[in-house]
């Protein structure tokens, strides 16, 4: 475990040195994120000029949920997205061999190899928005809601990770899977509102095939103190199962990989 943390630390340090060469780029990235989060909050505020509750969600809870949405998105975009993009390229070019030869778990190496450090800004702003929501909610924040929030948030990120891992595993068979990834990105937009708002087909998709809806809604429920114990247990168990299944699928895919010249 400590060995892997050290490896990941090295990856992050390498990425940081690389990014530091483009500082203006970093600054503009932050500007973009401010625009995106600001306008999303604007949309929520417009909705709430006409109502005080959205399917039972108050304004404060909706703001917290918006923050969670950017936390989950930011977490995925920080680590897994850049790593998986490179992974798909490796499969296409046949250069995956070099990583597979290394004496460490390939899944860990490949899932955490690259970091889009700019996305730390998303995390910071997402947390900021959650805190604003919390401040407005103040009366109902308890130790339990904070702990369950942290746990379900981690589960949310891992749920999306499990999906992405399964999707990139498909590239061992199909090589080009940009289209499949595009479907995932199309659905992520739906995470901005609580999943219970959507019509059946969309709710089902966002809870199972593309779990972004669950990943965002459950932590937001946790922090606003409206999550049931069943949901909490279900989230933990579901995440463990999803990650185990994805990692099993990954191993099957890996066995299918034949390398560039083999």
């Amino acid at each position: 475990m400590r060995r892997y943390l050290r490896i990941i630390g090295t990856f992050i340090a390498a990425e940081a040195k690389n990014e530091m060469a483009y500082r203006a780029n970093l600054a503009l990235g932050v500007v973009e994120m401010v625009l995106v989060i600001g306008t999303s909050l604007g949309a929520v505020l417009v909705l709430f000029t006409h109502t005080t509750s959205l399917n039972g969600w108050t304004l404060a809870q909706m703001i917290a949920l918006t923050g969670v949405y950017y936390l989950i998105q930011g977490g995925v975009a920080l680590i897994f997205n850049p790593s998986f993009e490179k992974l798909m390229e490796h499969v296409r070019m046949g250069t995956l061999d070099f990583t597979l030869l290394k004496p460490a778990n390939a899944q860990v190496l490949l899932s955490t190899r690259h970091f889009a450090l700019i996305r730390v800004a998303d995390l910071v702003m997402g947390f900021g928005v959650v805190i604003v929501g919390l401040y407005m909610l103040s009366a109902s924040v308890t130790a339990w809601s904070l702990v369950s929030f942290a746990l379900t948030l981690a589960c949310g990120v891992m749920l999306v990770y499990a999906l992405l891992l399964s999707l990139v595993t498909l590239s061992f068979w199909f090589v080009r899977i940009d289209n499949i990834m595009a479907i995932f990105w199309a659905f992520t937009d739906a995470g901005r509102f609580p999943i219970d708002l959507y019509p059946g087909w969309l709710r089902f998709t966002l809870a199972t095939v593309v779990p972004i809806g669950i990943a965002v809604t459950v932590p937001a429920e946790a922090i606003s103190g409206r999550m049931s114990y069943e949901t909490f247990i279900g989230m933990l168990v579901g995440t463990v199962l999803a990650v185990a299944a994805a990692s099993w699928f990954w191993r099957i895919g890996l066995r299918n990989y034949t390398g560039a010249s083999a």
């Binding site: 949309a43 006409h50 399917n55 595009a182 479907i183 199309a186 937009d189 739906a190 959507y198 019509p199």
Partner: peptide
């Protein structure tokens, strides 16, 4: 066809939100 999905998802999201508002009111 995939771009279609992008075209349709966001309007459906906001439609769902406004329906929730309308129902609440």
């Amino acid at each position: 066809l995939l771009w279609m999905l992008f075209a349709i998802i966001r309007p459906v999201i906001f439609l769902a939100a406004w329906i929730a508002v309308a129902v609440a009111q």
